[in-house]
């Protein structure tokens, strides 16, 4: 894969949320407003970038058997750093993201990219992959947040848009609205790309997909 393709892969063809179906928990939880969607996206991109760089550098030093725990510790280190940065420079975002900021550790996008990409590729490619995936994740969250904020509160990025014209549909900022919005967006993506629905429930990019499939048999 060329360098440019590595970068754009995560944004469109393998968008982590809309195509690979990874990182669903934060995509549903923090997207009641567009702004915290972007914040979550940037925080995750930072962690992804850090973990991909470090893992691609030390991939030959990590024994295969303890690979996953080692990855998780590296990721947890970066999440702690991001936690400090957000707490110091964006206290409001810290409050909006709440528990989902530390939970970036168990966001399967990061572990999946470590396992599938960074542990098998060079540092430059891993950086591009992390940026592409991070941007793709941020855009997906921004889209989710925009739809939910616009319909659910009548505002966009905090600016009043349709609030005074029509009554906002509160449903879209409830948890149920989160599931609904994501379902519709994925259906639209499927419709636009004419993607055949995957037999395996679309879990193929997930590090636990094999174990999950074994359980469901």
């Amino acid at each position: 894969m060329g360098y440019l393709k590595t970068l754009t892969n995560g944004i469109l063809k393998e968008n982590p949320v809309l195509v690979l179906m990874l990182g669903m928990c934060p995509s549903l939880a923090v997207t009641t407003v567009a702004k915290s969607g972007i914040g979550m996206g940037i925080a995750t991109t930072f962690v992804l970038l850090g973990s991909n760089i470090v893992i691609s550098l030390i991939k030959n030093l990590i024994p295969k058997a303890v690979r996953l725990p080692s990855f998780i510790v590296i990721i947890a280190g970066f999440v702690t750093m991001v936690g400090f940065l957000v707490e110091a420079y964006a206290p409001q975002l810290n409050k909006d993201l709440g528990i989902f900021l530390p939970l970036i550790v168990v966001n399967c996008i990061i572990l999946a990219r470590a396992e599938i990409f960074a542990s098998q590729n060079g540092t430059v490619k891993s950086i591009l992959d992390a940026l592409g995936m991070g941007i793709g994740f941020t855009l997906a969250l921004f889209l989710m947040g925009s739809v939910r904020e616009l319909i659910g509160s009548g505002t966009w990025l905090g600016m009043t848009v349709t609030k005074e014209l029509v009554e906002p549909m509160k449903f879209f900022v409830t948890p149920a609205g989160g599931f609904f919005t994501l379902g519709i967006i994925i259906a639209v993506v499927n419709f636009l790309t004419h993607k055949k629905p995957s037999e395996k429930n679309g879990c193929h990019g997930c590090p636990s997909a094999d174990a999950c499939a074994k359980v469901s048999e």
């Binding site: 409830t174 948890p175 609205g177 599931f179 379902g183 519709i184 499927n190 629905p197 429930n201």
Partner: peptide, 22 residues
Amino acid sequence: PQFFKGMPATLIAASIVSVSFV
């Protein structure tokens, strides 16, 4: 519909289950 099959339909069903918990 074809493009709702799989994840989209599952998510919308989850949305309805979630409504009941409200």
